[in-house]
Design a protein around this nucleic acid. Structure first.
Lengths: 101, 101
DNA sequence: ATCTCTTATCGCAAATGTACGATAGGTTTT
DNA sequence: AAAACCTATCGTACATTTGCGATAAGAGAT
């Protein structure tokens, strides 16, 4: 954006849906979620073993998913256990369902 | 990306889902789709009237939705009629449905 | 042929995204 | 206290996205 209008008013839930879509807009993040769905939860290191990406890169993707609210991290020293945030997952599910009618 | 591994192998449909998600990863594009759902079809100019963005910007968003396969344009000179691409729309719907279990 | 209308595309600028290696910060183990 | 382990964050490089105005390209009307 160069000189955007900054505050465009979108209809109900439009921004929320776009935000969730953005979090899912990368195959690595889809893969992470799919992995989490199968395992229920996992540690960062598990993903580093599975995905052909640097640890820092995976950590960044996890951060984005967390910022979008789709996952949450729980400290299990010395590791961090990541799980799907069920509450927000439901919200996202509902938004997409309604969007696709 | 700097020096990526280029060819990461993702699981079935992972890239397809990410591609659709990416197309929906902007509130303007969500708004366009919602508008199309209500109107069935519309011209570029209709959107220019409705959205507070330059014509060129809207044309670009339409292009992305078209590239993702979610909409299609039909020449109705001197205008272009955009509609949802029902076939791919169903595909996207199914991918998201399965993704959210 | 020229003019008008509509839309795509170009060129640019700024912001954001993606990837990496290196480093820091925390906990447990030795 | 030191070493080992795990993960987040920093700094960097490059690619992509987003936005605009200006221009081109197409068809219909005059």
């Amino acid at each position: 954006m160069k000189r955007s209008l900054e505050n465009i008013e979108y209809r109900e839930n439009t921004e929320a849906l776009a935000k969730f879509a953005k979090a899912l807009a990368h195959p690595t993040r889809i893969a992470i979620i799919k992995y989490l769905e199968n395992q229920t939860c996992c540690f960062t290191g598990d993903l580093v073993d599975v995905l052909p990406l640097a640890q820092s890169t995976i950590s960044q993707h996890l951060k984005e998913l967390k910022n979008a609210g789709l996952i949450q991290g729980e400290l299990k020293p010395p590791r961090i256990k990541y799980c799907i945030n069920q509450e927000n997952w439901k919200k996202a599910k509902n938004l997409f369902e309604e969007f696709f009618k």
